[in-house]
Design a protein around this nucleic acid. Structure first.
Lengths: 208, 208
DNA sequence: ACCCGAAAAAGTGTATGCAATCTCAATGCC
DNA sequence: GGCATTGAGATTGCATACACTTTTTCGGGT
């Protein structure tokens, strides 16, 4: 249930600022309000929803400043992960990363945005796991999830798909070459780019 | 109430592995089980307690591997914060940091471990805030809290107080000089040292 | 003496009910 | 006409109750 709600927020089925009424949710999930409340509590702790005392919960709406900070932090974390990946990934991990990256070129050529989005998620996940630090990887994944609502439609932008692929290319090259610093810098630059692009979508659609 | 429980875990009043019985807690706080459950849910989301379905909650007991990963990640995060602090801290922030650091020398000389512990918390907090990235600072603080139960008694060790102060010294020097890379490296080294020292206390006292 | 199994006890997960608080709108006052 | 106020409706927060799972204990058998 936490999973379901989390997905709905991440995929944009629930927009930032949208009200999360306990009763409606309870009715929707065919359970009572108690487990709903518990789920909301957990989502609030994760940071996906915001709980205002006696005033109900809403999908977390993030101030522009904080959003920028989150993207900055994300860039730093991805940089660290990429740097560590360059020195710690096994040969098998490197090959898988490279293979999937090569395969994704076809998605770019065909302009299959949704498929590339899925690939992108896997790519970044590989980067996190490649650090061989599960905690850091979890932290990075979590942050990525929290940013998802604000990064969603970026691939719709003209030429973004191709640019994203080339940025990935630089990261992969550096990792394969075992050059940690360069990989880290490339990953940081990649996220910074995404941050720029995503700023367009940052404005919440509904703020009643 | 989340705060209270969190404090008890961090300060070691509740040890890792210890059982958190909902009824007892409810009785202790003079409330019903419902709010206790909610608090436990939040603490579980933060990672301070572990919830096993139908088997109750315990204070989070962390596997040695994961603990090592957490300290590694902590080192990277502090490194990033220190690097950013070197370039972003205001003159006032730099002065406060340096002033408090200098003042703490007296605590070392007098061997006042508890006071130094408090100073240490403030010092690191300043480092996080100095990054001028609230999200990153929050992330670092949270991780620091989660590690607290395993880092608690480190200052009891012989000479650790003095060593800690000298490590801080290097960080402060680099930040005042505006040398981000050096500050980052010093902070990383500092946490790595703490990690080493804390490994001694990592073994959970009770695993029934 | 040890092990296995069943029943009781303890404890968690969920549902429901009630009190407190907030929202919103209509009304009265300036 | 605009603004504060008050009441009704709606919603959250907490307490209690019950069903279900796990654990413990006690008895019997090997």
């Amino acid at each position: 249930m936490v999973r379901t709600l989390s997905d709905r927020i991440v995929t944009g089925a629930l927009l930032p600022g949208e009200r999360l009424d306990e009763q409606s949710l309870a009715a929707g999930f065919l359970v009572s309000r108690t487990p709903v409340r518990e789920a909301l509590g957990q989502l609030a702790a994760i940071g996906l929803v915001e709980r205002r005392p006696n005033r109900g919960a809403i999908v977390a709406v993030i101030a522009p400043d904080r959003l920028a900070a989150m993207f900055d932090a994300m860039a730093e974390m991805e940089g660290v992960c990429a740097r560590l990946s360059a020195s710690r990934m096994t040969a098998a991990e490197r090959e898988e990363l490279a293979a999937e990256h090569r395969a994704s070129k076809e998605l770019v050529r065909a302009g299959r945005e949704d498929d590339y989005d899925r690939h992108n998620a896997v790519f970044h996940s590989r980067l996190y796991r490649g650090s061989h630090n599960d905690f850091l990887a979890d932290l990075a994944s979590q942050t990525r999830v929290r940013l998802a609502p604000f990064r969603r439609a970026q691939f719709r932008l003209d030429g973004r798909l191709r640019k994203s692929w080339h940025e990935h290319e630089r990261i992969v090259e550096a990792i394969l070459a075992g050059e940690g610093e360069r990989a880290g810098a490339a990953a940081k630059a990649h996220v910074a780019e995404v941050s720029q692009v995503s700023a367009v979508f940052a404005t919440p659609k509904l703020t009643p």
